[in-house]
């Protein structure tokens, strides 16, 4: 049995941690799947799916560290006009930070609920906002 749901969200800042833990847990609990796995996957290349502790100070440290590793002002090759878009790129920091974050996470599902640690929150992390965003949540099992 496979159940696919889509979370629609809207970021309001250029970079933003959006906690989707509750939404993912509810999708799993309503899916009808008792034992299996859930995958949370972003539909975008300048966002990440991150599992970490849901504390503002942790978010700040992660954001600050990513910005040191991926500075705003650097000679990125992507900083040019893209004819296929009719718009400029100029969002390399988003693309690269999304690679550090990864595009998905996985959790086991047992007895119809997610099995996870108490500090494991699930985030969509915006790296090129504000934008409307989609996250796929696929519950697989029996």
């Amino acid at each position: 049995m496979v159940v696919l749901e889509t979370i629609q969200t809207m970021s309001h800042k250029v970079e933003e941690f959006i906690n989707i833990t509750g939404q993912v847990h509810r999708i799993v609990e309503n899916s009808g799947v008792k034992n299996g796995m859930v995958a949370v996957i972003t539909a975008h290349t300048t966002t990440g799916i991150m599992v970490n502790e849901g504390l503002p100070c942790v978010e700040v440290d992660i954001a600050d560290t990513l910005s040191k590793i991926v500075p705003l002002e650097a000679p990125y090759a992507h900083a040019h006009f893209l004819p296929s878009y009719g718009a400029t790129g100029n969002n390399s920091t988003g693309h690269i930070k999304s690679m550090f974050s990864g595009n998905h996470c996985l959790f086991p599902v047992i007895d119809g609920t997610i099995v996870c640690g108490g500090a494991q929150d699930i985030y969509l992390v915006e790296f090129d906002g504000p934008q409307a965003r989609r996250i796929f949540v696929e519950v697989m099992g029996e």
Binding site: M10, K13, V14, A87, G129, P130
Partner: peptide
């Protein structure tokens, strides 16, 4: 190309950024 219709809340978020 590769952009789609945007609601006012998206447009205003962009402006406010």
């Amino acid at each position: 190309w590769k952009q789609g219709p945007m609601r006012f809340d998206e447009l205003f978020a962009e402006m406010e950024a």
